[in-house]
Amino acid sequence: MSIQHFRVALIPFFAAFCLPVFAHPETLVKVKDAEDQLGARVGYIELDLNSGKILESFRPEERFPMMSTFKVLLCGAVLSRVDAGQEQLGRRIHYSQNDLVEYSPVTEKHLTDGMTVRELCSAAITMSDNTAANLLLTTIGGPKELTAFLHNMGDHVTRLDRWEPELNEAIPNDERDTTMPAAMATTLRKLLTGELLTLASRQQLIDWMEADKVAGPLLRSALPAGWFIADKSGASERGSRGIIAALGPDGKPSRIVVIYTTGSQATMDERNRQIAEIGASLIKHW
């Protein structure tokens, strides 16, 4: 067993022997300050990975656009099909120029040879490739089937209704393509630590998230040396920005953090900075 597999395998073990964890309200002060700075709603939740206990939250049951954070859930659904023998990570999918949508930095380079399901999930999570996400959605039956998968997991909140890039419209009070911080955190925890996926698939999912290449300005920018993070960011219209992450010190994840914001007129750089500052406060008061 590799060191990485050993780390994931021990998560349920540590759950039975973990020391108590305590929240620090200073982080919530920073979350509220971020709302003021951005002139927008901010949703935040911090969940103990082992016990599932909510350590701190702000607007945990308000809806926010999922943006590209849905791609982790999508690849979780794909992996569940792999575990059930209904899909193969090595299966090659061919597509055409007509399938390409905006922001497809990986898939646009493989029009001649296609990409495997594994490569598409990697592109969707690590590079947030939109065409990769659409091709993967097709393999499971579309957005409604992803919503059904989540319902079967016990998540009756999170929903995907449209494809890339339309799902990023982020219209106020529109429940399409939205989640709540509490629902997303719970669902992510189930995918990473529960029995829904095999150990190999849980490890694959967290490996893809750990290799995320487009979330550098967010929580990763505040991460001390030696800390672990596996994450997925998202951005969409109407000043929306978000990130879902499993992180912790000593090279292993111990908490789930979900941050969403929407309705801001601030620049992308400012939205990134506010999320990074929330992360810095979280780490300082860990």
Rank of each mutant, 00 (worst) to 15 (best):
R59H: 08
L135W: 00
P105G: 02
E164N: 05
G90L: 10
R271A: 13
L74M: 07
D161C: 02
E237G: 12
R118I: 07
I171T: 13
S221D: 08
D207T: 15
S80R: 13
M268V: 07
G43R: 00
F22V: 08
I11P: 05
T261H: 07
V29W: 05
I243Y: 04
F17R: 07
F228R: 02
D83T: 01
L219C: 01
E87A: 04
T112S: 14
L89H: 03
A280G: 09
H94S: 14
L218M: 08
I206Y: 07
L38C: 05
M127R: 08
L100C: 03
Y44T: 00
G142E: 15
D99Y: 06
R159C: 02
T193V: 15
I11N: 06
L160A: 07
P165G: 03
S221I: 07
A40S: 12
T198S: 13
T193S: 13
H24L: 03
A230C: 06
T126Q: 05
A182P: 04
R63T: 05
Q274L: 12
I275L: 08
W208C: 13
F14S: 08
S240P: 02
H156Q: 11
I206C: 09
Y103D: 07
R176A: 06
H24K: 09
R255C: 00
L89D: 02
S236A: 15
T186L: 12
S96Q: 13
L223Y: 01
A77G: 05
A280T: 09
W163G: 05
D269T: 11
V78I: 12
R7G: 12
E145V: 11
E175C: 10
L19H: 15
S80Y: 12
M184I: 08
E46V: 09
A15E: 04
G239K: 02
W208Q: 01
M153Y: 04
L47S: 05
W286C: 08
P105A: 03
E56C: 05
T262S: 09
L196Q: 12
F6V: 07
A211E: 14
S221L: 06
L137P: 10
N50A: 15
I256N: 00
S254C: 10
E175T: 11
D155N: 09
R162C: 04
L146S: 00
I93A: 02
K213V: 09
S240I: 13
L188S: 02
G52D: 04
T267Y: 04
G239W: 03
L191I: 11
L136M: 07
A133V: 08
G154R: 02
G90V: 12
V42M: 07
